[in-house]
Nucleic acid binder design. Structure first.
Lengths: 200, 200
DNA sequence: ATTAATTTAGACTTCTCAGTCCAGAATCGA
DNA sequence: TCGATTCTGGACTGAGAAGTCTAAATTAAT
């Protein structure tokens, strides 16, 4: 049996994700199988509950980009990053969550900031550092702008898929499609940033 | 003097954009300098007003990508598209609007769909057709996938900037920065999709 | 077993907001 | 000018939701 607090957070995550901030505390209490008073005892008020949920979720988000396997060829590495992104960060659950944050950040600007720091920012940072290293090894050529190149690679992966998801359009990717897209992205990126360039 | 209806739409656009769907009809009536009853006479109810505002706005959104000047070199054309995007579609106003739609599409899924069709979808379509033509002329090489290439170019432009804007982070680009980014994007794209490729 | 703390159920207060109603003022058409 | 339409201001209703309160039940600690 989960702790009372954990059950509340779980229910809150699910309901906020699917309905946005416009969920009644009663609804959360019901789904968590907890009395309203307990909910207020644990979290004080709705806003604090919301923030606690964000903080709780942040921990889960940091894992996907695991840039530990350093010694692979850039193309393999990039394919893998893309694959992981499509598998974990791009499914309807995570996109729904992202969507909810976007909606809520209108009311609580600091939520958007916090999400950015915990999520996109960290991925960007990690990827950028890896690219800088590869550039020193002569296996990438970002023109001395690994930060921009990392931005562009993430945009390449997420781009249109994520935009559609945000607007509520279906975004399920079959495994084969994930594979195809992942390879395609790595390919495009290597054409633009690989070491053997012609133009520029 | 604007018509009553136009004034209401203007006020609604502004308020919905900045505060999301959680704006009171009273507030809208006040800003529009109109009585509440008039507001209801004109639009029936809040949801219809919201939809009318979307429809009204849609018309404005279709202009920016003006793919009429066909005979320029791809690089120039792409730079121009990017420049237009950064200038018109990426400022705080338009991003705020996009953000609001994302938030509302949780409550009204068809809004997200409508926005996608009227905005991103049309840009994608136009760009994709242009790329297909350029490919026939031998001035681009998208590997027979102009649709994907167009997706990627738009992602390249919008990518991180838009994501930050959605989360409420500042996103103002100075003119010089717009110029730099526009050129950079066209450059990257040409490296990956220009005709003189090495890898593949 | 007894005491202290926590949980429960649900009634209650207060507030905000969508939408209605109405009586009088302004506007418009012929 | 006069009749019809539209707009105004503001009171009003009804619903939903945040947060409080209380008395009883449950759980945990000694």
């Amino acid at each position: 049996m989960l702790s009372v607090r954990a059950r509340i957070l779980e229910a809150a995550t699910e309901l906020f994700r699917t309905h946005g901030y416009d969920v009644s505390m009663d609804a959360i209490a019901n789904v968590a199988n907890v009395s309203k008073q307990t909910l207020y005892n644990q979290f004080g008020n709705k806003e604090d509950l919301f923030k606690a949920m964000i903080a709780d979720h942040g921990a889960l988000m940091r894992a996907p980009l695991n840039v530990s396997a350093l010694e692979r060829h850039p193309r393999e590495m990039l394919t893998d990053v893309a694959r992981q992104f499509y598998t974990h960060a791009c499914g309807p659950t995570e996109v729904g969550y992202y969507r909810m944050i976007v909606g809520a950040s209108q009311q609580f600007p600091e939520m958007g900031q916090a999400y950015y720091e915990a999520g996109p920012r960290q991925m960007l940072e990690a990827l950028s550092q890896w690219m800088a290293r590869e550039e020193r090894l002569g296996r990438l050529d970002t023109g001395g702008e690994p930060q921009l190149a990392a931005e562009h690679f993430l945009s390449l992966i997420a781009g249109h898929i994520e935009a559609k998801g945000l607007l509520g359009l279906s975004v399920e990717l079959a495994p084969a499609e994930i594979e195809r897209r992942a390879r395609y992205c790595a390919d495009i990126f290597m054409r633009a940033f690989g070491p053997q360039r012609l133009l520029g």
